[in-house]
Nucleic acid binder design. Structure first.
Length: 259
DNA sequence: TCAGTTGTTTATAT
DNA sequence: AATATAAACAACTG
């Protein structure tokens, strides 16, 4: 689930429930979820601090706490939950910040992703690694520039976080379907016209998804067909193709999407 | 029982 | 030097 729009939703959720509250306790049920420090050091760094407004870059969420910053990556199955008390904690609530008035929980079934602690903003970049510009703010000239000397397939390029941050498997399928571009089309084969369509689709898909705070499964979107028994193109009703492209299961319409 | 899964990193191959 | 591929991580679901 967690791609750019999902993390945008988590950020808003954090802002609504956790921001402005003071950290009373830090609970870590699985120490491995804290990636670059120990649970006790994390607790020491955060306890007593007031949580500020969160921010996001790509699939990363940053939760500043008056100096130190908590970094969250949600992997494939992560999410946040707010609760007034501890009565309904789940076994996959790997990290819980007990605040005044309730608690915010980082839940993650699989252990992909996790929590990192940065001493300050200057340390954030080395934790996230190389990230391209956030996909939500890439304008058309910048997209053309990013892809100008890129070889290989377009789906791989869109999902490369070091090139453009925030697009994952589902969002890349949606963008490419909306732009009518085949997922394995070579970047160098895309003319300016198709790059324009790509940018339009990327922007539209992200703006609409961000409104929902997640990638929606809208009737007119190809993501609505993911996982169904007989997936069909919402535009032309052709049977969708499904195959591994750039290491992930891609869905596309063989009639609408061309190389 | 077994394949498949929204992400990233690592190793290996091209 | 880039790009591609596969495996690994963990814990589920169908």
């Amino acid at each position: 689930m967690p791609e750019l729009p999902d993390v945008e939703g988590f950020k808003r959720y954090w802002a609504r429930h956790a921001s402005g509250h003071r950290v009373k306790e830090v609970r870590v049920s699985n120490p491995a979820i804290v990636r670059n420090t120990s649970p006790s050091a994390l607790a020491r760094a955060l306890k007593g601090r007031r949580l500020e407004r969160p921010s996001r870059h790509g699939k990363w969420m940053f939760a500043p706490a008056g100096g130190p910053i908590l970094l969250l990556h949600f992997g494939m199955t992560g999410g946040l939950l707010w609760s007034r008390d501890e009565s309904d904690r789940h076994r996959h609530d790997r990290l819980v910040l007990v605040l005044d008035g309730g608690e915010i929980r980082y839940r993650n079934m699989r252990m992909l992703g996790g929590a990192w602690l940065a001493r300050d903003a200057s340390q954030v970049g080395q934790i996230t690694g190389e990230l391209g510009p956030d996909a939500a703010v890439v304008d058309r000239p910048q997209l053309e520039e990013l892809l100008a000397d890129r070889r290989g397939g377009i789906k791989a390029a869109l999902m490369n976080q070091g090139l453009i941050a925030g697009i994952g498997n589902e969002l890349s399928d949606e963008i490419l379907w909306q732009a009518r571009i085949h997922p394995s089309a070579q970047v160098q084969g895309l003319g300016r016209r198709r790059l324009g369509a790509l940018h339009r689709a990327m922007t539209d898909a992200i703006v609409e998804s961000n409104r929902h705070g997640r990638i929606p499964r809208l009737d007119g979107w190809i993501t609505s067909q993911r996982g169904v028994r007989d997936p069909r193109c919402p535009r032309c009703s052709s049977r969708l193709r499904r195959a591994t492209i750039a290491g992930r299961t891609a869905y596309w319409c063989p009639r609408c999407q061309r190389h």
